[in-house]
Simulated scan of single mutants.
Amino acid sequence: MWRSIASNALTLFIVILIGMAALVAWGRNEFFAAGPLQQPICLEVERGASLSAVSRTLEQRGAISDARIFRIGAEYADLAGDLKFGSYKLPAGASMAQVLEAITTSGRSTCGRDLNFRIGVTRADVVLSELDLATNSYAEVVRFDAGATPLPPEYLEVSDDPALTLRITVAEGVTSWQIVDALKKADFLQGALETVPPEGSLAPGGYEVERGTQRAAVIASMTAKQAAILAAAWEARAPDLPYDTPQEALIMASIIEKETGVPEERGRVASVFVNRLRQGMRLQTDPTVIYGITRGEGVLGRGLRQSELRRETPYNTYVINGLPPTPIANPGAEAIRAAVNPDKTDYLFFVADGTGGHAFAATLEEHNRNVAAWRKIEAAQGATEEGGVQGE
C-alpha cells in the first residue's frame, strides 16, 4: 500500500512540475510575444510611479495582456526598480519585453511634447512641438523668441508638465557671450551666470535638461564636452601643423567655422589658412576683424568698412601676422577636426561663388578671376560682403 501511495505521489509531483514548466513557458511566451496594441500610444510615467501602477495602466490601455506577467518579467530581469519618468511612445504590437525596455532603459522621452531652446548666431528662439503618432514626427505647435513677453498661451499650458522634454540646442559658430545671454532667458533653468566662459570653450550641439537645472551646470557640460572633443582631435592631428598647441588649433577651428557653412568645405578652407601660415602670409579673413569690433556680443549687422579693415587690432588679420589671440566663436567638432587634419591642397585663396559655397584658387591670377565672377553675382544680388580671403 505504501508503495502505491508513494508511486501516486511521485506521479502527482511530476504532473505538477510539468504543469509549472508549461506555465513558465506560457508566461515567457506572453512576455516576449507581440503585444495586443493595434495603434501606437503615448505612455506617461509619472515621477515616483510604482511598477504595479504602471502595469495596471498598461493593461487598462491594452498595451499588455497581463499586468502580473509584466511585473514578474520585470522582477526576473531585475528592472522592477528602474522605472524612468517621462513620456514614451509604445509602437503597435510591442511585446512586454519591449515595453519594459522603453520605460526603464534610457529615461529619454520618446513621445509627447518637446521644447527646444535654440541658440543661433543671429537669434535665440523656442520651438514647442508635439509628436504626431500617425506620422511618427514632431509637429510644431508654436515658435517664439527667447525671453518674449508675454509668453504664448500654448507654452504656458504645458510649461509645468513634468513629461515635457526640455532641450537646449547650440548652433556652431555662436559666441560664448551669446550663449550666456540666451541661457539667462531660459525660464526653465535656475541660477546666475556671473562670467562669460572663454571663447571657443563651449561645445555646440544638443543638451537635454530637466526643469530647474542650474545654468552653471549647463555651461559645465558644454565645457567638458568641448574639452573632450579638442583633446581627441589634437591626439589624432596631422604632423607638421603650423601651430603648436590645442588652443591654437581651437582658434583656427573657430575661423573655419565662421568662414563656411558648407560641411564639405571645411577641410579645404582649413588648407587655405594652413598654407598661408606656412608661407608667412597673413590670414586676411573678415570674421576675425568683425570679432575685433563686436567682441562676440551680437552680430555686426552690416558690411565691414575699409577703415575697419585697416585699423590695427589684435583680431585684424589684415594687419597682424599669424593667428588672433583667442577663438572668435565656439566651433563644432567637425571644424575642430578640419583644423587639425586639413585637406592637402595648394590653395591660398577663396571667395564666395554665389551658391552658398566658395571658389578656391592656388594663384592670385585665378583668384582675381573668381573675385570678378563673384562681383557680377554680388551686383545682381545687391550683396555687400565678399567672404573668403583677399589677394595680396
Rank of each mutant, 00 (worst) to 15 (best):
I5V: 15
S7I: 13
I14R: 08
V15E: 01
L17M: 13
A22C: 11
L23P: 06
L23R: 08
R28V: 09
R28S: 11
I41G: 11
I41P: 07
C42H: 07
L43Y: 03
E44F: 08
L51A: 14
S52D: 10
L58S: 00
R61H: 12
G62M: 12
G62P: 03
G73S: 03
D82A: 12
G86F: 00
A92S: 05
S95A: 09
M96K: 07
T105K: 13
R118F: 10
L128R: 07
L131S: 00
T135A: 13
R143F: 05
P150D: 06
A163R: 06
R167A: 09
A171M: 08
A171Y: 07
G173H: 01
V174N: 00
V180T: 15
V180D: 10
A182Y: 02
L189E: 11
P197Y: 14
E199W: 03
G206K: 04
E208P: 12
R211S: 04
A217R: 08
S221I: 10
Q226P: 09
W234G: 14
R237P: 07
A238T: 08
D240S: 06
P242K: 02
T245R: 05
Q247Y: 12
L250N: 02
I251L: 08
S254F: 02
S254M: 05
I256Q: 09
I256C: 06
K258Y: 02
G261T: 11
R268S: 09
L277C: 07
R282S: 03
Q284Y: 06
D286G: 06
V289Y: 01
V289R: 04
I290N: 04
I293A: 07
L300K: 01
E312G: 01
T317Y: 02
N321Q: 13
P327H: 04
R337G: 01
R337Y: 08
A339H: 01
F350P: 10
V351N: 12
V351H: 14
L364N: 05
E366P: 01
H367K: 06
H367T: 11
V371F: 00
A372C: 05
W374M: 13
E378M: 15
G388F: 04
V389Y: 13
E392F: 12
